[in-house]
Design a protein around this nucleic acid. Structure first.
Lengths: 221, 221
DNA sequence: GCTGGAACTTACTCCCAGTAAGTTACTCGG
DNA sequence: CCGAGTAACTTACTGGGAGTAAGTTCCAGC
């Protein structure tokens, strides 16, 4: 038969299509991990819009429908990238906050951890914020979740800083938490775009100084 | 000839295709305005991604290439929407700031004006922020410009609040301005999504209280 | 070996941004 | 009134990318 033009059967196991590894069939979990890594890398480099599923498929050396089978949609894949980063970032900041000696220090070290993490993972950052954390993309709900987690962390810190027995104005706590979240996000974006950004410590210190007094005002109102 | 099947010539001037107005040819300026209005409306309702050029063309009652001839691209059209809103919003806030009696009042009334404007123009808001002001969209550069204008306004205010002769740490001014910009944007988004958002005055007051003390700290460092 | 299912592919469809090339209607000089 | 020039506008397409239907290949366990 002349129909066997593509003949995938005879491909020697000693030579893969692009790299040295033949990497024929892998089990699902391994393949998923592989795809996720490629996606994170390409999304990080080119952004969500500019990345096509074919690009990712090609990078992994697999066909597009497989990715759809595992991740459902482009959004789904992007979401999966996001979830991983979100966990890392949240853990890093939480740890810093918990390890702090007092409230003022928690604020400062929390900020430092945030900016430092983003310095250390520039690629992650692109994925998370530059396209992901904005409210519009298709992954809006997921990024909202990420943000909500941070806001909850901040709100908790704020509340802990208030006198225990006093009734708390939840609106005010929310306003403050949203403000801080917005400020840190914008500062992060600004830093990545600045040619000579100030150190994480400098930014954290200035931001802490800007907010610290006002946080007390809250409690004395 | 059987070729004259579509025969657009005999369409009576008393009856348009969709509405009462025949609205055949209009001069360029008028048509551009018409397109811009439709675009603002549809972008505002459905968002940038979910809006197709065909949608807008259909709404105006015109064919797609005409829009391309006038606005160049989807981004170009979106940009044009943005430019208009940016002007209005910036003017509104600037006016409020200028009319204020002192620096503290300027901060407060500036915030009020910002949130009030977005309450009054919810559709504009969707266009500007929910898809536009984020950093990722195709209109990234334009939205950056809009933001940069606000940040400049804020930075000017901050500087004016500092002692005249003293050397200013530009980094710190930038950090503060970026923070305020980020906080107001996030608060705006939060308000639109909240079922019962606090009044503009309440948000402005809380935010002012949060920042006011810290702004003084800046100068005494 | 044979069969059942998991891993994986080819070959599409549809949708949408953007374009090439043409057609219609208004205007202005004669 | 008439032709020619041009601005306003259209039909009919290309190209690329998301998502899918219908297989095909390989391995596990009987």
């Amino acid at each position: 038969m002349t129909s066997t033009t593509h003949g995938p059967a005879q491909q020697g196991p000693t030579e893969g299509p692009t790299q040295g590894s033949p990497k024929r069939r892998r089990d699902r979990a391994a393949r998923e991990r592989e795809i996720l890594e490629a996606a994170e890398q390409i999304f990080g480099k080119r952004g969500y819009q500019a990345t096509s599923m074919d690009d990712i498929a090609a990078q992994v050396g697999v066909s597009k429908p497989l990715i759809y089978q595992y991740y459902g949609s482009k959004d789904g894949l992007f979401l999966a990238c996001l979830a991983r980063l979100r966990g890392q970032l949240l853990d890093t900041v939480s740890d810093a906050v918990i390890a702090a000696s007092d409230a003022e220090d928690a604020l400062y070290t929390g900020f430092v951890a945030w900016f430092q993490f983003l310095d250390d993972h520039p690629q992650a950052w692109s994925v998370l914020v530059d396209e992901g954390m904005l409210s519009a993309g298709p992954a809006a709900e997921a990024t909202d979740e990420v943000r909500a987690a941070f806001i909850e962390l901040i709100a908790t810190m704020v509340r802990m800083n208030l006198p225990a027995g006093r009734p708390v104005d939840d609106d005010e706590v929310q306003i403050v938490a949203q403000s801080i979240s917005g400020a840190t996000e914008r500062l992060a974006i600004w830093r990545t775009r600045s040619t000579t950004p100030p150190t994480p410590e400098k930014v954290a210190r200035t931001l802490k100084d800007l907010l610290w007094q006002g946080l007390h005002t809250l409690k004395s109102t």
